[in-house]
Design a protein around this nucleic acid. Structure first.
Lengths: 251, 251
DNA sequence: GCAAAAGTGTTCGAAATACACCCATGC
DNA sequence: GCATGGGTGTATTTCGAACACTTTTGC
């Protein structure tokens, strides 16, 4: 809300409504062992036939968070977002020329999810799929490539100091599965022994869930299973870079 | 931005413009040795006579960052924002009832500044001043108390792992002055010896500027002076909490 | 000289890394 | 049995916190 108006006020004191507001959601997940993002194929102009983030205009009486949830449900055929899907605001994008239809400001969200149903086409969307983040990027509509980049940066950074990585796994999960998430998102390998010690050393991060499960069909001792604990921040953080060289850490 | 419209499109494909967008700026600084925020006294409704963050509606062809800069200049009598003032987006606030005039979404910014001129009243503003963050908070207009809280959290967190704290100091500065910034923002005391070793150990953080300056009128050895280096991220981060207890660290 | 603050050095314990080694499973 | 991965232990090293000591200033 403003404390001063630049343009003459109209109606109840608001300037003429020349700005539209959308939400765009970058849903990140680990799908078939690949760190991936949910994209939709636009079936209407502008940018018809291009891949884009799910997005829609904010309705008149709708909270921004609610708009983000609704967008995911409407455009991907996911009836109701499963519990455990984390949705947080990323940032807003408001360049005056970012949408050919006029002045459109987008409030972007990041979502972290596990175990989603295969997405299908929804409203105004011809197709929907998970696209691995590391693959040659598709040309995206609007400035969505930048939003995707910011979302991926956020995820890579946030799993360092928060328990976010568990959001990429269905419960219960083994420590190896959790380590595989870190390795896939960061693109490096971690020492299994030290990783285990670290995550178990953070109180309230992992709760024993009972039971065990082999991680590969071809042998190996089954790993004990855990579920998410109440802790949300990691201290000390997990590290993804060498202190001196900045190079990846790993065997 | 949107890939699907919820409401019928009008004009060039945009829904009816029921949403207004503002920027609000939380300018943080260390003023007279107090960690402070710039507030303005509203001279127009709504919330006339209340303290608030500087804010204004985004103009039709204006980038969000530019709107934030303009807002600071117009409402505080600061002709041109000095170089070295850092301005970054905080997040957006979009509750449907946060402004009595209608649907107004605010893109909030945080600014980090040093050595500003004393603010004065500007457009639609009766007064402007720096208010220490730690003081009994004034009742603020709109949801600005929440925005202030988020901005302060951002600052307290960001000086841990970035070189941001130097933005609160005019160049050149001594290491003690830098330490005083940390102590004031975090509200604790730090070991002068270890602090010095840490900040000098981060390559490219501090560049010798030559000369020295006593920090107090009543004696003490003058401290060598430095200016900001090219480094922006701190590794390892400076710590503000005890690893075990979460309690403040210090003598 | 004394007080105060900057700058330097040292000690001690915690923590991270890099391994080696054993255990449990599939085949 | 062998290969594969989970779980445990440990030596080495690095790092940080604490604190003693020296230096340079104002008074």
């Amino acid at each position: 809300m403003g404390s001063s108006e630049r343009e003459p006020a109209v109606g109840k004191g608001l300037p003429a409504g020349v700005v539209a507001v959308t939400v765009d959601v970058a849903l990140l997940t680990v799908h078939q062992h690949r760190f991936s993002i949910l994209l939709v194929l636009r079936s209407e102009p502008p940018w018809r036939g291009r891949w884009a983030l799910p997005g829609s205009f904010v309705a008149e009486d709708e909270d921004l968070d609610a708009a983000a949830r609704r967008t995911l449900e409407q455009e991907t055929g996911i009836e109701r977002l499963p519990d455990g899907v984390l949705l947080e605001q990323l940032r807003s994008y408001g360049g005056p020329r970012r949408d050919p239809r006029g002045r459109v400001i987008s409030v972007a969200y990041v979502a972290f999810a596990a175990n989603l149903p295969v997405p299908r086409a929804g409203r105004r969307v011809a197709d929907a799929r998970f696209v691995p983040v590391g693959d040659q990027p598709l040309p995206l509509a609007f400035d969505h490539a930048r939003i995707v980049g910011d979302a991926v940066d956020r995820a890579r950074s946030k799993i360092e100091y928060s328990t976010l990585a568990t959001a990429f796994l269905p419960e219960p999960f083994s420590i190896s599965e959790l380590r595989a998430v870190y390795e896939e998102v960061w693109g490096l390998s971690l020492d299994h022994s030290n990783f285990r010690r670290k995550v178990l050393g953070v109180e309230g991060f992992l709760l024993p869930a009972g039971g065990a499960r082999p991680s590969r069909p071809r042998g190996g001792r089954p790993g004990l299973l855990y579920r998410r604990g109440p802790c949300t921040q990691l201290w000390p953080p997990l590290r993804r870079g060498d202190p001196d060289t900045g190079a990846p850490v790993g065997p």
